[in-house]
Amino acid sequence: MTTTRSITRLATGGHYFEAPRWHDGRWWVSDIYAGVLCTYDEEGTRTEVLRVEGNPSGIGWLPDGSMLVVSMHDRRLLRRSPDGEVTVHADLSRVCEHEINDLVVTSDGRAFTGTIGFAVAAGDPPRPGAVFRVDPDGSVHVAAEDVICPNGMVVTGDGSTLLVAESFAGRLTAFTIGADGELTDRRLFAQLAEPPELGPLPEVMAALALIPDGCAIDAEDGLWVADAGHQRVLRFDRTGTLVEEIADPHGNGVYACALGGDDGRSLLICTVPDFFAAATGVDTDKANLELTRVDVPHGTGRP
């Protein structure tokens, strides 16, 4: 199951990378605890695009080319127009108490994002969060409740299914997306073992066989998943069967991934030695962007 693929380092020296995307010939990534959304070219040159005081996370693009970016702490979606103007697209602070995190935008401009549900960086015990839908007009709707730390999100190539990583339940959950954006038919997509009961965070993390974080979907609707608990990325096929594992050669934590490059076969992997050290400011320059090559390219799925 574990494969040996050549892994090269695109860049290092970030604070904590999340939500990588390939767009317009560049890698886009949120350096969360540095408060910066930035791009990297294929030589690893970094360009700062946007400072987000509330800490940036999930990134997506609307049909008109505007970029949405999550502002985690103040629970807002910011909208950066093609000419660089930044406005508030949606304010979720009225519907959730804790940080929002990852983001996926559908082809018709609906955005799905989730609230972690508890103060994860402070080590609080996990509690259920929720997934929200933000329509193109900026209106906010609760799309799914009782989701255990909704994290990475993708939409299948035909636009019919939302897959959500429930980090501290150790599972990937699927929803059918209706024509009106409603989520129905909640079901298990993949899980390596039964999750433990919720309790103290260190105990939950130690007991999980998989801590799914950021995700990327390929042309076969196969899902690459960063496993935040086991220093690896995993690929599940469209049936939810585990088919490949790539371990980080440096033993660092793996927190997000994205497919891109000119042919869509480059897998970008976000790593850092210690999430909690990065989140609390103990380590501020040890995050890395790693690259490997995979067999199935990115397709029409999102992001």
Rank of each mutant, 00 (worst) to 15 (best):
T3Y: 11
T3E: 15
R5Q: 06
R9T: 15
T12E: 13
E18K: 02
E18V: 04
P20M: 08
P20S: 06
P20C: 11
H23N: 12
R26P: 05
S30I: 06
S30L: 05
S30E: 04
A34F: 10
A34D: 15
L37V: 14
L37P: 10
T45L: 14
T45M: 13
T45W: 09
R46E: 15
T47N: 08
T47E: 15
V49A: 13
N55F: 12
P63N: 03
D64A: 00
S66L: 06
V69T: 01
V69W: 00
V70W: 01
V70S: 05
R76Y: 02
R80I: 07
R80T: 12
V88Q: 03
A90L: 06
D91M: 14
S93C: 00
S93N: 08
V95T: 15
C96H: 09
C96N: 12
C96I: 05
N101Y: 09
D102T: 06
D102H: 03
D102G: 01
S107D: 15
S107K: 15
D108E: 15
D108C: 14
D108L: 12
D108I: 12
G109L: 00
R110W: 01
F112I: 07
A121M: 06
A122C: 08
D124P: 03
P126D: 07
R127F: 01
P128V: 04
A130C: 04
A130Q: 01
V131F: 04
F132I: 00
P136M: 01
P136E: 03
G138Q: 00
G138L: 05
V140F: 04
D146N: 04
N151Q: 05
G152Y: 11
T156R: 07
V164F: 11
A169F: 05
R171M: 00
A174S: 03
D180C: 00
E182H: 12
E182W: 03
L183V: 02
L188N: 12
Q191K: 09
Q191H: 10
Q191V: 06
L192Q: 08
E194S: 13
P195H: 07
P196V: 02
E197S: 14
L198M: 12
L198K: 04
G199D: 09
P200S: 07
P202N: 11
E203A: 15
A207W: 04
P212M: 02
P212R: 13
D213I: 07
D213T: 04
D213Q: 10
C215W: 13
A216P: 13
A216L: 11
D221T: 10
W224C: 00
W224M: 02
A226S: 05
D227H: 05
A228H: 08
A228L: 13
Q231E: 14
R235V: 14
F236S: 09
F236V: 09
F236W: 08
F236C: 09
R238H: 11
L242F: 13
E245K: 12
E245W: 03
E245N: 07
I246K: 09
G251C: 03
N252K: 06
N252R: 09
V254P: 04
Y255R: 01
Y255E: 05
A258C: 09
G260Y: 11
G260H: 04
G261K: 02
D262Q: 13
D262G: 14
D263R: 00
V272Q: 12
D274I: 10
A278R: 00
A279T: 00
A279Q: 01
T284E: 11
T292Q: 02
R293A: 14
H298R: 15
G299R: 03
T300G: 06
G301H: 00
R302E: 11
P303C: 09
P303S: 15
